[in-house]
């Protein structure tokens, strides 16, 4: 199905070309096509087990696809994983922080792994600390933080390299109102700065508030994609929740 491109002049930042992944007999991701441009926020919705995490991991270069290609800023994530990882911020339920390090030590460590040193690292750490309101607990160990504070520190880790691409897997899950707002503001600022953001969520209101386009992943396939309005219009439903349920039933 075709959907209007938000801004054809912007470069493609995240592309999935027939991306497929199988776990033994289970087809987790089935020939997924995606094209997300710079400055665009794309929301990936779908029930549990739809293949969202697997798809995002392949796009982030931490999992190899069985078929198809994942491109970040035109570079293949399987062939150039280090370049791709250096140019994207990835956060998922599986990317926890080291509990025995303080937030400051965490930022220093991951900044070092990104190749940041000295004043550059200091400046970037300061920027993400300001952006995500980490000042109060910079010296605390991660395992002493609340889940919301921990998620903000983790976002800071993902934003640290000032990456042009962000892939966030359910970044607001189980967060309180304040931490959730921090995350949503961070996504809005990323969009304003021209970054491409791909994020998955179960919170429909969040997707409606943030996303330029939404993709619905059902049983490993993109069952529908477009703006919220175009999806509701095209499928003649009243809400995104209704649409997901109907697509899920249709997929059997």
């Amino acid at each position: 199905m075709s959907t209007p491109d938000p801004d054809i002049s912007r470069r493609p930042a995240i592309e999935a070309l027939g991306l497929t992944r199988r776990y033994d007999d289970h087809l987790a991701v089935d020939r997924v096509e995606l094209n997300i441009r710079e400055g665009e926020v794309y929301g990936l919705l779908g029930p549990n087990g739809a293949g969202k995490t697997t798809l995002l991991r392949m796009l982030a270069g931490v999992l190899k696809p069985d078929a198809g290609r994942a491109l970040i800023l035109g570079r293949d994530a399987s062939l150039e994983p280090l370049w791709v990882k250096a140019h994207l911020g990835f956060l998922s339920g599986d990317t926890a922080l080291y509990g025995r390090l303080t937030v400051k030590e965490t930022l220093d460590y991951f900044g070092g792994l990104l190749g940041l040193r000295g004043p550059t690292l200091e400046a970037r750490a300061q920027a993400v600390t300001d952006e995500l309101g980490l000042h109060e607990f910079l010296g605390q160990r991660v395992h002493d933080l609340s889940s919301g504070q921990r998620q903000r520190a983790n976002l800071a880790r993902a934003f640290l390299g000032d990456p042009p691409v962000l892939i966030l897997d359910e970044p607001t899950v189980a967060l309180d109102v304040i931490s959730g707002a921090f995350v949503r503001d961070a996504v809005k600022r990323a969009k304003a700065a021209g970054r491409a953001v791909l994020f998955s969520t179960h919170i429909m209101s969040e997707a409606e508030e943030l996303c330029d386009r939404i993709g619905l992943l059902v049983r490993g396939r993109i069952a529908a994609t477009g703006t919220k309005e175009s999806l509701l219009r095209e499928h003649q439903v009243g809400s995104l929740t209704e649409l997901i349920l109907s697509l899920h039933e249709r997929a059997g």
Binding site: V62, P81, L82, A86, T95, L97, G99, F110, L114, G115
Partner: peptide, 14 residues
Amino acid sequence: ERKTLATLLSAPVP
């Protein structure tokens, strides 16, 4: 188990 390995793997390190 603590899910920190995936974080490390998401960094650009061979």
